[in-house]
C-alpha cells in the first residue's frame, strides 16, 4: 500500500476518513452515520461534507445535541442489527456519554453471557493544537484504553485513516477511533484501490537499531521528524506506531526494544497513569534485562490544556523534547 504506483491519488487525512465512510456505506446498507452536525454542516471537522447529498437524511442523521443520546442510540441501533458509525465532536465531549460507553457498550456482551454484542464504531477528534482550550483539546484515549470490552484505535497515517474504519465496522465489538485534530489536514498519497488494514498490530514505520521511539496518533509525525533529526548525528531510531491502544501489541514493542535496548515513549496524554505508563510497565515486565537505560517518556504537562498558542505549544510534546529524551537514553545528551 505504501508502494507508489500509477494509481496513487493526492489526498488528505480528512478526505481519507470521508472516503472510508462513503465506501462503508456503499458496501453495507446497515451502515449509517449519526451525530450532531454530521448532515447539512458536514461535520465539525468537515469529515462528512457531501455525504448527506449522496446518502440522504436516513443514513446521514443529524441528531439532537446529546452525546448520551446519540452514543446510547448507536448502541441500541447496533443491537437492532445496524452497523452505526457515531461521530462525537471531541473526546472531551464524549465524557457526556461515558456511562453509555463504559457501563453499557463495553460490558453488555459479557454481562449478558454473550447474548448481546454491540458492533458499534464511535469516531471522535482528540488532542491539542487548535487553540480551543481544555474542554476541547485533551487526549483521553489512553483512559478509554483502560476499559475491557472496547477496542481503541488511533490512526496516524492516511492509510490507517482510510483502512481502519472498514475493519472496525466488521468487528463484532464496540470500536473507538481517535482522530487527532491536527491530522485532518495532513496531505499525502493513497492508492486508489486501497484496502482495509488490520486493527490489532503496531507497525514499525522507520527501522533503526539505536533506540525505539514508541508513539501513536498526534505525536507520530513529530516523532518521525525527531528520528530524522537524530539521523543527522548518525543515530538510527526505530519508530513504532502503536495504532491500536487496546489491545496493545506487546510483541512488536518488545521485539524492537530487545534489538535497540533503549526506549522512549511519546504520548500526548498526561504522564501519570497514562498509556505511556502502561507501555513502560510492559517493557519493564518483558524486556527489563535487555535495557541499557531506563525507559523515558515524553508526555504532556499535567495541566488542563491552555488556550494561548505559546502555552498550548509548551504543554504538549514537541520535536526538541523528543530529540532530547532520545539523546538522554543514548547517553549523548549535551
Amino acid at each position: 500500500m505504501s508502494v507508489k504506483s500509477a494509481t496513487m491519488l493526492k489526498t488528505t487525512y480528512r478526505e481519507a476518513v470521508r472516503e472510508a465512510i462513503r465506501d462503508a456505506m456503499r458496501r453495507d446498507d446497515r451502515v449509517f452515520l449519526m451525530g450532531e452536525d454530521v448532515g447539512k454542516y458536514g461535520g465539525c471537522y468537515a469529515v462528512s461534507l457531501g455525504l448527506l447529498e449522496e446518502f440522504g437524511p436516513e443514513r446521514i442523521r443529524d441528531t439532537p445535541l446529546s452525546e448520551a443520546a446519540f452514543v446510547g442510540a448507536g448502541i441500541g441501533a447496533a443491537l437492532g442489527g445496524m452497523r452505526p458509525i457515531v461521530e462525537v465532536m471531541t473526546v472531551n465531549f464524549s465524557l457526556l456519554a461515558l456511562d453509555q460507553i463504559v457501563n453499557t457498550a463495553a460490558t453488555i456482551l459479557h454481562m449478558s453471557g454473550g447474548q448481546f454484542n454491540v458492533p458499534l464504531v464511535i469516531r471522535m477528534a482528540t488532542g491539542a493544537g487548535r487553540q480551543l482550550a481544555a474542554q476541547h483539546s485533551h487526549s483521553l484515549e489512553g483512559w478509554y484504553a483502560h476499559i475491557p470490552g472496547i477496542k481503541v484505535l488511533a490512526p496516524a497515517t492516511l492509510e490507517d485513516a482510510r483502512g481502519m474504519l472498514w475493519a472496525a465496522i466488521e468487528d463484532p465489538d464496540p470500536v473507538l477511533i481517535f482522530e487527532h485534530a491536527m491530522l485532518y489536514g495532513q496531505e499525502g498519497e493513497l492508492a486508489e484501490d486501497v484496502a482495509a488494514v488490520d486493527i490489532d498490530k503496531a507497525v514499525i514505520r522507520r527501522a533503526g537499531s539505536d533506540v525505539s521511539l514508541i508513539t501513536y496518533g498526534g505525536t507520530f509525525y513529530k516523532t518521525m521528524q525527531a528520528a530524522a533529526e537524530l539521523a543527522k548525528d548518525g543515530i538510527e531510531a526505530e519508530v513504532i506506531d502503536l495504532r491500536s491502544l487496546r489491545p496493545l501489541d506487546n510483541g512488536t514493542i518488545l521485539d524492537s526494544v530487545r534489538r535497540t535496548h533503549r526506549a522512549v515513549i511519546i504520548d500526548e496524554g498526561w504522564r501519570s497513569g497514562s498509556l505511556a505508563a502502561e507501555v513502560s510497565a510492559r517493557i519493564t515486565e518483558g524486556a527489563f534485562y535487555e535495557l541499557d537505560a531506563p525507559v523515558a517518556r515524553v508526555c504532556s504537562a499535567e495541566v488542563p490544556m491552555p488556550y494561548a498558542k505559546h502555552l498550548e505549544e509548551a504543554a504538549i510534546p514537541q520535536l526538541p523534547g523528543i530529540v532530547a529524551a532520545a539523546r538522554e537514553v543514548l547517553g549523548t545528551h549535551v
Binding site: 449509517f32 436516513e58 443514513r59 448520551a68 443520546a69 446519540f70 452514543v71 446510547g72 442510540a73 448507536g74 448502541i75 441500541g76 441501533a77 447496533a78 443491537l79 437492532g80 442489527g81 445496524m82 452505526p84 453509555q100 453499557t104
Partner: peptide
C-alpha cells in the same frame, strides 16, 4: 433508555 431508542430507530430505518 437511549439504547432502547436506538433499537427503535434501527427498526424505523429498516
Amino acid at each position: 433508555i437511549p439504547p432502547a431508542v436506538g433499537t427503535a430507530i434501527s427498526m424505523k430505518i429498516r
